[in-house]
Amino acid sequence: MIAVPVPWILALSAVLFVLGALGVLLRRNAIVIFLGVEIMLNAANLAFVAFAMERAGSGSVSSAISGQLFVFFVIGVAAAEAAVGLALFIAIHRLKETIDVDRLNILRW
């Protein structure tokens, strides 16, 4: 069976990371910014998976499993982050009737 080259997985991870960063930096709707953060987290997960696969290829199954555990932890953190973030958006929307981050400027001088 032909293997998937590790650099290809890393390349996909890099592309997704840049797209996520573009979303975070260029969009102004808080929810879409948040989606960008999720994309970046997933790109990082893919990198973990790529390195785990590399380890599996070199015979070290336990470090290959470690790589997958990191993904597991990142997913856990992402879930926690989503819960808090979305609660924040609801609170902000109640106050300002919008979640456009450009309009959240009362702390600006």
């Binding site: 998937v4 080259p5 890393l10 930096l25």
Partner: peptide, 27 residues
């Protein structure tokens, strides 16, 4: 964003094996 991406690729470049590849049979 693109600079961050380039930075990441540059940082990771040395770590990735150029020829390494794996089959799913490992698991």
């Amino acid at each position: 964003a693109i600079a961050v991406g380039a930075l990441v690729v540059w940082a990771v470049r040395g770590l990735a094996p150029v020829t390494g590849g794996v089959t799913p049979d490992a698991f």
